[in-house]
Amino acid sequence: TEKQERAIEYIRRLGYSEEEARRILKKANGNPDLAKEIARRIG
């Protein structure tokens, strides 16, 4: 989804690889607090 793409872009800007960014997002899917934090940061 567009939100996922924005989140991946944001995480990659922090210096993670695409693969790492996707792994972090997968974790965020099972972790509402982390997901909220990422969403808050990407606006």
Rank of each mutant, 00 (worst) to 15 (best):
Y10T: 05
R12L: 12
E19P: 07
K36S: 05
L14C: 07
G43K: 15
L14I: 06
R6S: 13
E20D: 09
A28S: 05
A21Q: 01
L25T: 01
Y10C: 06
I42F: 14
P32Y: 07
K3V: 13
R41M: 12
L14G: 01
E37F: 07
A28P: 01
I11G: 00
R12M: 15
E5S: 09
N31F: 05
R6C: 13
E2W: 04
E20A: 11
I8L: 13
L34W: 07
R13I: 07
Y16G: 00
R22S: 05
R6W: 09
K26G: 07
E37D: 09
L34I: 10
R23A: 14
L34E: 06
G30T: 03
A35C: 06
Q4S: 09
S17L: 04
R40A: 09
E18C: 10
E18W: 08
I38F: 05
A39W: 02
K36A: 07
Q4W: 12
A21M: 03
P32T: 09
E18R: 07
D33L: 08
R12I: 15
E5F: 09
G15P: 00
I11Y: 03
R13Q: 14
E9P: 01
K27T: 12
E2M: 07
T1N: 12
A21D: 00
N31V: 06
T1P: 10
T1L: 14
L34A: 07
L14P: 00
I24Y: 04
G15I: 00
Y16R: 02
R6G: 10
R6E: 15
P32H: 05
R22E: 05
E19H: 10
A28N: 02
K3D: 15
G30M: 10
R13G: 15
D33H: 09
I11Q: 00
K36W: 07
R12S: 05
R12E: 05
Y16T: 01
S17D: 05
R40E: 14
R40F: 07
Y16K: 02
K26C: 09
L34P: 01
E20Y: 08
K26L: 13
E2V: 11
L25N: 00
D33G: 08
R40L: 14
A21W: 01
R41K: 13
N31P: 01
N29S: 08
E37V: 12
I11R: 00
E19M: 11
I24S: 00
I24H: 01
L14D: 00
A21N: 00
R12W: 03
A35I: 03
K36H: 04
E18P: 06
L25I: 05
A21R: 00
R23T: 11
I24P: 00
E20W: 09
G15H: 02
E18M: 09
E9L: 10
L14H: 03
R22T: 06
N29Q: 11
A21E: 00
R23H: 12
E19A: 13
E18I: 10
R23G: 10
E5Q: 13
D33Y: 08
K26V: 10
R23L: 14
